[in-house]
């Protein structure tokens, strides 16, 4: 499930298939919930073995390297709980955000899961306008209860830093 560097850079040959419409719709939905600070609804998208990862470098091994975010399901729950207090000062009030998800390509797929890499541009407004961008890799799982999010790795263009406070859902 850990998505490695080849998906962020080149090394993946040729044109790749676009995701099925239901998968694309699910990813747009995930983006919209994050943009609109709908924290609890966003949290519900995640499966139990979730990993929400924002590395400092695409090749980093999280066993030995520090990441900006490396949340398992429990940590995701905590992150959302903190945001929901209304007292997470760095998101009080929440950033106004809109992100565009594009260039969607399926990196891998089997009966159960599909891994989709996309580019994103996120415009954040909080006191001033800021832009975030990067490569995002989603692992989406088909379950009897519908599509669930098993993994989301965000390779920020600006990961080399310095980075601004990143208390919203990237």
């Amino acid at each position: 499930m850990t998505v490695t560097a080849d998906v962020t850079q080149a090394a993946v040959p040729g044109p790749l298939p676009v995701p099925d419409p239901d998968v694309a719709a699910f990813l747009y939905y995930e983006a919209r919930l994050a943009d609109e600070a709908r924290y609890s609804e966003w949290e519900q998208l995640w499966d139990d073995d979730a990993l929400y990862w924002v590395p400092m470098h695409p090749e980093d091994d999280p066993r030995t390297r520090l990441s900006y975010i490396y949340d398992n399901r429990n940590r995701i729950k905590s992150r959302v709980a903190q945001l929901n207090t209304g007292n997470r000062h760095a998101q009080t009030p929440p950033s106004v955000m809109r992100r565009v998800l594009g260039n969607m390509e399926v990196l891998a797929a089997d009966e159960e899961t599909v891994t989709v890499a996309s580019n994103f541009v996120l415009v954040e407004y909080r006191h001033e306008q800021r832009t975030w961008a990067g490569r995002v890799v989603h692992t989406v799982r088909r379950t009897p209860a519908g599509l669930r999010l098993a993994g989301k790795t965000v390779h920020l263009v600006s990961a080399g830093g310095p980075v601004n406070t990143l208390a919203f859902l990237i």
Partner: peptide, 29 residues
């Protein structure tokens, strides 16, 4: 001490840095 270190890394991410539960708010303040 790999086991200790992995735990320390995860604790560090939880508290510190731009997305940390503590320092993001210290930065805002």
């Amino acid at each position: 001490q790999d086991k200790l270190n992995q735990r320390t890394l995860r604790r560090s991410e939880g508290a510190m840095g731009p997305a940390g539960f503590l320092i993001a708010d210290d930065g805002e303040i």
